[in-house]
Design a protein around this nucleic acid. Structure first.
Ligand code: NAD
Ligand code: NAD
Lengths: 227, 227
DNA sequence: TTGAGATTGTTAGATATTTAACAAAGTATG
DNA sequence: CATACTTTGTTAAATATCTAACAATCTCAA
């Protein structure tokens, strides 16, 4: 365990560069796939090839958290996977609540793979009387007015925001008041939360625009080649 | 227009670092919000504050594409927005097809904000006979067996994959065979496509794991402070 | 049991990205 | 219309990230 710490916490989470953090789930998925295929060992070279990065980077990323491999052998898949799961906080039964039982909220609530990894949606809230009382995957949708009180009685770690952007900040405030520790936000708006609360945005619209940009650039590239 | 070009195209799209590309939609959204509020002018300092980045970075990002501001004044919101829209390929009527009319596919198909920006889902495909023939937001779901033939008759630029991971590669191949130029993939799997096709992955599960990691780190941080 | 071959963890060097600094050129105000 | 102020675009310096290199050390086949 080495990890050079930096004075400003800007891009770092406790000495881990955000660029590294973003690769961790990729390693997790690859290792899960290998484990499912009952592959026993894997080298940094193989992992790197699948991630389309450099083998050095794999070794350096992992070395920030510890020494999980063996010279001349590589990494034992099951061991490395369990270590990465620990690092990511997977399989630790993380309780969540979801706010906004619309199109996207329902898709997220019905998705089984999150629960499979220990991320459980305990309750769902909405504002619309037509939605409140309906059942989504065995959970009755509650009135968002009860949100803060519910959380005080039944604490959860993560709040998922699937409301329109206009309501997102208000919902975030209620989640924070209820003692939530992290917010997973699908609304296209920058939220303000206290420093103690972690934020993760899902930018679907932005992702589509990035694809659009790449397309335009590629077109131009091909056009220029023809000349 | 300056743009220092680099020999390897690895992280670059025609000389534009991917880190910059990822910030462009953020600028777009901020400028849209300002335009909606009828704000006339904005400085790099103001934009930077909202994006939580450095003003120098804003100016440098924009300068890769041209000179859009005025000394002593800043940027005219409407002009900069229209330039960024051009850069991103927004409002150019981009045709798309969606494959997989399940939970997530329906949410995406029903979402109006994409069409509002010129990204139109022309057709929807599925494999399940119970889904085929149903209507999603005025579009009848077609049989995925017709996908490639449909595209040859009705070309589209972007294919959206909302099928399970196990079917995603097969669907991608069909989209490519139909002449699609870019793929927006929601399935948690790395797709293989020809070099001429652009790829953009949406990693919902990975995003949740990143939040989980941040939470764990923050907990440890707070714990260490108490000591 | 030995020795050739493999692969890690780590340090140092190469690249890329971000930030600072500032001349140039405009604005705005009296 | 002069002048103090603002803010851009750009160049250069500071940081951060990625890649190469290699000693240390384990594997595995003979
Ligand atoms: N559907 C998509 O594909 C998509 C894509 C990109 C972004 N998003 C974003 O995700 C969010 C949800 O999108 P959607 O398509 O599910 O919208 P939706 O309209 O289907 O659902 C929103 C739900 O939030 C509820 N709601 C509104 N105000 C609330 C409040 N104050 N408290 C609790 N519930 C409230 C509504 O009653 C509704 O049920 C939006 O912010 C949207 O911009 C969605
Ligand atoms: N729902 C979520 O919140 C969520 C979150 C993260 C990732 N994802 C991913 O998004 C994808 C879709 O998720 P979902 O929840 O909508 O699943 P879903 O099961 O509700 O929908 C999948 C749809 O794809 C169709 N399909 C299957 N094979 C097909 C094929 N070969 N051609 C055309 N259609 C086919 C199915 O009939 C079904 O209608 C999955 O890969 C999932 O892992 C979803």
């Amino acid at each position: 365990m080495s990890a050079a710490n930096n004075k400003d916490g800007k891009y770092k989470y406790k000495g881990i560069p955000l660029t590294v953090v973003k690769r961790l789930p990729g390693y997790q998925r690859l290792l899960s796939e290998l484990a499912a295929k009952e592959v026993e060992r894997v080298s940094s070279r193989e992992l790197a090839a699948k991630m389309k990065i450099n083998p050095s980077q794999v070794r350096q990323d992992l070395s920030l958290f510890g020494s999980f491999g063996q010279q001349g052998y590589g990494y034992r898949v099951s061991y490395l996977l369990s270590e990465i799961n620990k690092i990511l906080g997977i399989n630790a039964e993380t309780k969540m609540v979801l706010v906004g039982g619309g199109q996207l909220g329902r898709a997220v609530a019905n998705y089984r793979n999150f629960a499979k990894r220990g991320f459980i949606i305990e309750a769902i809230f909405d504002r619309d009387p037509r939605v409140i009382g309906r059942t989504i995957d065995n959970r009755v949708v509650r009135d968002v007015q009860e949100l803060t009180a519910y959380l005080q009685a039944e604490p959860a770690e993560i709040g998922i925001i699937c409301t329109p952007a206009s309501a997102a900040q208000e919902v975030a405030d209620q989640l924070v008041a209820g003692g939530i520790k992290g917010i997973w936000n699908f609304a296209p708006v920058a939220l303000k939360v206290p420093e103690t609360v972690c934020l993760e945005h899902v930018h679907l619209g932005e992702s589509l625009m990035i694809l659009s940009f790449k397309l335009k650039q590629k077109q131009e590239e091909l056009f220029n080649q023809k000349k």
